[in-house]
Design a protein around this nucleic acid. Structure first.
Lengths: 304, 304
DNA sequence: TACATACATGAACAAAATTAATCGATAGAT
DNA sequence: ATCTATCGATTAATTTTGTTCATGTATGTA
């Protein structure tokens, strides 16, 4: 394995130089390296020939490092531990103990959900790092295929060859109203009842908003105004102060009702039920820290 | 060359990983490494098998690094330059451009002389480092044989097999007297004239002091007092203030006479002439930065 | 002087890495 | 849609390299 004509110094040479220094003789070094003395003698001489420098002074039957040898020893002591560590780390990669889990998020409630689940996961997998990305040039599915992310959290699974989606969270999408809102006491709201309201949503395309696709649009209704807000907290603040109504997961509203004076109202008689899925490449099914995340997510779903 | 069963990651692997990243494909990498595409493909696959980790995702006809691959790339970018630099430095060793010249000093005037000559030498050989040692368990010759030092500067050459000595400096050892000293006007001093004096010398054994071995002892004379002082400056200060007389090289006294009010007096009618030699191992005769030092020293001798 | 120990050497052998030839897949051009 | 150039994988043959075995030489020691 010579790769370049120029490259002479191999890892094995450094191992030999270090072993000879530690053991004090070629023969002893050969033993620790599980080789014969002859093999080391040959290799050492060849290295010296190629470098054009003596590495040891031969004085009778002992080897004393030359200046070049002393320098090489310092190189060996510096670089060999780094190579050893690299191999150890790769072994962790191989065993699936170490890795980076890159999440892609396609919806705002997904993000809220991930926050809850990531912290027990990190505790269980200390050698795994987590990264979250939210913008994708070719959509979440494309990011999965391009290996930009490893897990996609989305309400819209796409059953496509090479990808696996698993439901991890069920929730009901509800209307959120502020204090003293006329709809607050209703068992449910009908589309027409929003035609005079200001609807506040996250800033995404309308066909990705369930209030539209599964509630307003089928009934041919539009709200009087439509405002977009980035963050959930501000959105709830707006609703609590009577500036409009919003559509959010019921669990999120209930969690935040202690903080903001808001109440959930069912969307339509039947309600709007949603699911969040995680998707990953089938090729990655064997990565155990990835599987572990999916399992953890599923177990959370059971417990609710 | 496998050395350990454990060691997998070789320099060549890192070269391949770096080249594939830089060139963008196996085929292009093979070209820059002067190998065939097949060779790289084999080596890469074998490495992945041994590590148990994929280094690249194979997507159609392109290679995209996996997490492990990205990590290995960072290792390669960190370690390969260090290996390259080590080889470059060894090449300098091989060409005799680089090295460390370790001096051993066996006499105080030798040290004074070395100080004068080292600075032009360092200017001429910027890649050579100089180190000076003054204490030796088995004497200067022993230090030479033990490779503790590379050059011995001494007034006492020992023509022994394996060593070469060259005279590099001739000087006259003289008595140094202070202002108003009765001997100051004499053309020379005789041993008896020192029997009432205080003699100041460096702190070494008497049989290594030329005032004794070549002047006082042959005449059976001893000075009244004998004091020892480490440093030349303090010694001259003592002499200048009339606390005693000393024996030093004439050139040193003349150099310092501007600074201290001292004068040289010949030791005996004939004077005491001395030589400084540098000795080195014959085995090192081929080291050109060592030869260069000896040459430089000799040329200084000529010019004086 | 004999003996043990350490490194060097040459030839034979074993184990690799490398190559050549070929295949299948893919992206881009016509 | 088809063709073509390009890329990586594969197999078998070849070459190179590393290792061992047996032996030699030098050195320090009982």
């Amino acid at each position: 394995m010579y790769v370049f004509a120029m490259a002479i110094l191999e890892r094995a040479h450094l191992e030999i130089i270090r072993a000879v220094d530690q053991q004090g003789s070629l023969t002893a070094a050969a033993e620790t390296l599980h080789l014969t003395q002859s093999a080391l003698s040959h290799t050492a001489r060849k290295l010296e020939d190629q470098l054009g420098v003596a590495i040891w002074h031969r004085e009778g039957r002992s080897l004393r490092p030359t200046q070049a040898g002393a320098y090489l020893l310092s190189v060996a002591n510096r670089l060999l531990p780094q190579l050893d560590q690299a191999e150890a780390l790769l072994r962790q990669f191989a065993n699936g103990e170490r890795g980076v889990l890159r999440f892609g998020m396609e919806c705002h409630p997904c993000y809220q959900w991930l926050l809850k689940i990531v912290s027990p996961y990190l505790a269980a997998w200390p050698a795994v790092d987590v990264d979250v990305k939210q913008k994708f040039q070719f959509g979440g599915i494309g990011a999965l295929f391009n290996y930009e992310i490893d897990l996609l959290v989305t309400p819209d699974p796409l059953y496509k060859a090479g990808l696996t989606f698993t439901p991890v969270f069920d929730y009901e999408q509800v209307l959120v109203v502020g204090p003293g809102h006329p709809l607050r006491q209703c068992a449910f709201v009908q589309p027409k009842q929003l035609s005079d309201e200001t609807l506040i949503t996250y800033p995404v395309e309308i066909d990705r908003l369930d209030v539209y696709t599964r509630f307003l649009t089928p009934a041919g209704v539009s709200p009087r105004h439509h405002k977009t807000i980035e963050t959930t907290d501000i959105m709830l603040q707006m609703v609590a102060s009577g500036r409009g109504v919003a559509a959010l997961p019921r669990w999120l509203v209930e969690e935040q009702s202690a903080k903001f004076d808001v109440a959930p109202v069912k969307l339509g008689r039947r309600g709007v039920d949603k699911q969040i899925f995680v998707g990953y490449r089938e090729a990655d099914a064997g990565i155990n820290y990835l599987q572990a995340f999916v399992e953890l997510a599923r177990s959370y779903r059971q417990s609710q």
